[in-house]
């Protein structure tokens, strides 16, 4: 009978051990992976009505780390929502939590892409023009 009880404890212990996380997570609770890719794949800019304000596709230069985006006449740049498509497992800093102000055309905003392994950081400058 003792052996049965012992067996039960062993099974439960193994079950608990099976739930243990293997990979570390960062301060945002995101998985830190082995990927070193770090780039912006696509960029979108939406107006307050959540309709694009781009007049043509954004030009992303992954070497110069710039995003050039041309917007429609009359765009209210104080209230726009940028959207970044990043390489797998990357994250963006600062986080975009709502509308952003891109109206200061002389001082483009910079967003940093952080790779999946959190070791590579690439700042991208978003240059907006009419």
């Amino acid at each position: 009978m003792y052996s049965k009880i012992l067996c039960s404890f062993l099974v439960i212990s193994v079950l608990f051990a099976g739930c243990k996380k293997d990979l570390p997570v960062d301060e945002d609770g995101l998985l830190i992976t082995g990927r070193a890719e770090c780039y912006v794949g696509n960029f979108e800019l939406l107006g307050s009505d959540f309709v694009t304000v781009r007049s043509k596709a954004a030009v992303i230069d992954t070497v110069a780390q710039t995003i050039n985006v041309e917007v429609l006449f009359g765009t209210d740049l104080k209230n726009v929502y940028p959207q970044f498509s990043l390489a797998s497992d990357c994250k963006l800093e600062p986080k975009i939590v709502g509308k952003q102000d891109f109206s200061d055309l002389a001082n483009p905003k910079t967003f940093t892409v952080v790779s999946g392994n959190r070791l590579v950081r690439k700042p991208y400058k978003v240059i907006v023009k009419f």
């Binding site: 107006g47 307050s48 009505d49 959540f50 309709v51 209210d76 209230n79």
Partner: peptide, 9 residues
Amino acid sequence: STKLRKVFN
């Protein structure tokens, strides 16, 4: 000078 914000849908 009236303030306006566009909305769609």
